[in-house]
Computed example of a mutant assay.
Amino acid sequence: MTWTLPEPMLSTPTSRPDLPPGIAGEPKWDGYRALLSVDEGKVELRSRRGTDLRAAFPEVVSGTAQLRDGTAFDGELVVWEKGRLAFERLQHRLQRRGTTAEWAAGERSAHFVAFDLLRLNGNDITSWPYRRRRTALESVFSARRLTTPWTLCPSTTDQEVVNEWLTWGAVGMEGVIYKRLPEPYRPGARGWLKYKPRETTEAIVGAITGPLAAPRTLLLARHDTSGDLQYVGRTTTLAASASGSIAPLLTVSSDEHPWTAWTFSAGWGSRDTLDVTLVQPDLVGEVGVDVARDSAGRWRHPVRWHRPRPDLSPADVTRITPR
């Protein structure tokens, strides 16, 4: 009987970065969640939502020659570029097939960072506690002497190590995942905890979605070091009170707006475009962001709007490096 990959186990956010007793921490990678199985010579590689990823990542499929039949991993697909995780490169890889996927595998190879072992020597081990699965996962890497594209995700019960990981935002690490040592792998359950460092910073409002009298979201900008106004991210949906306080501070742009004729995607991986209204880029706001950014300095995840900063001018906002 052919074994089928289960649904991935999931996490819920936590506001606490500390590592309690009985819990292990792992770095949270800025990549693409994936589950992989080798069963009777058949390779299965799929995303969290069940998308077949084999055609997009031929180097990972061919790398399964290093694995013993009856092995299944849970992990993260990542692409490294110039010393950091490059999610935008990974995003481009998802769209490639055939010869273009083979070319991309040579130019921007992906790694599979394994953080859990679901099957060992043909046996389903999801009922094992995390600490036992972790030991087995380490044994697979050492016994098989796994090399690229396989990477073993670190794990620790040392708070000092976790604290160091939380400083790795510059290389694309998003935070830490916490897992209970005695807990089995529970498909589809939100049994893990996820901590993401957040910071407060400033950005310029360059456009909005929704009506000018009641903006729904804000498209944010920063000048680059060449003086050009670059898009850096979009806020979550504004609360009614925030929308009402911002509206009087906005002015519809003149034809000389730097973003005239630009289009904006509705989200990462989406082909839908936003219906936006360009506004004069003179309003600065305080925002809350996490550490996930692309190589152009854009925030990958939605931004939380805190408050307008009429005391600041666009010249006071931190600049980014040109694309």
Rank of each mutant, 00 (worst) to 15 (best):
T209A: 07
S226I: 07
R216I: 00
S243N: 10
H257G: 04
A261R: 13
T237R: 15
S270P: 10
A247Y: 02
A239D: 09
A203K: 02
S270D: 01
R216Y: 09
L218E: 06
V252A: 14
S265I: 00
T200G: 14
V279D: 05
L250P: 11
S270R: 00
T273N: 12
E199D: 15
G227P: 10
W262Y: 00
A213T: 11
Q280V: 02
L250G: 07
V284F: 11
D255I: 10
T237N: 15
R234W: 04
W259S: 08
E256F: 00
H257K: 04
H223I: 02
L219P: 10
D275Q: 15
V205H: 01
H223A: 08
T236I: 11
L219R: 07
L219N: 05
D282G: 13
L274I: 10
G227V: 08
V232A: 01
E256S: 12
Q280I: 05
V276E: 07
L238V: 06
A247E: 05
S265C: 07
L212F: 13
P215Y: 06
T263K: 06
L220W: 04
T217E: 15
V279I: 13
A207K: 04
V205N: 00
I208A: 07
T251P: 09
V284P: 14
T260R: 13
T263R: 11
V279F: 10
P215V: 01
A239V: 00
A240T: 11
T235G: 05
S265Y: 08
P248T: 07
V284I: 02
G269V: 08
S270F: 04
D255P: 03
E199W: 10
L220N: 01
V276C: 03
T225C: 12
W259T: 04
L274T: 12
G244H: 03
G233I: 04
T209M: 05
T225V: 07
H223Q: 02
S243G: 12
T217Q: 14
T260Q: 11
E256V: 07
S241T: 12
D228R: 00
T273A: 13
V252Y: 01
P281I: 03
I204A: 06
T201R: 00
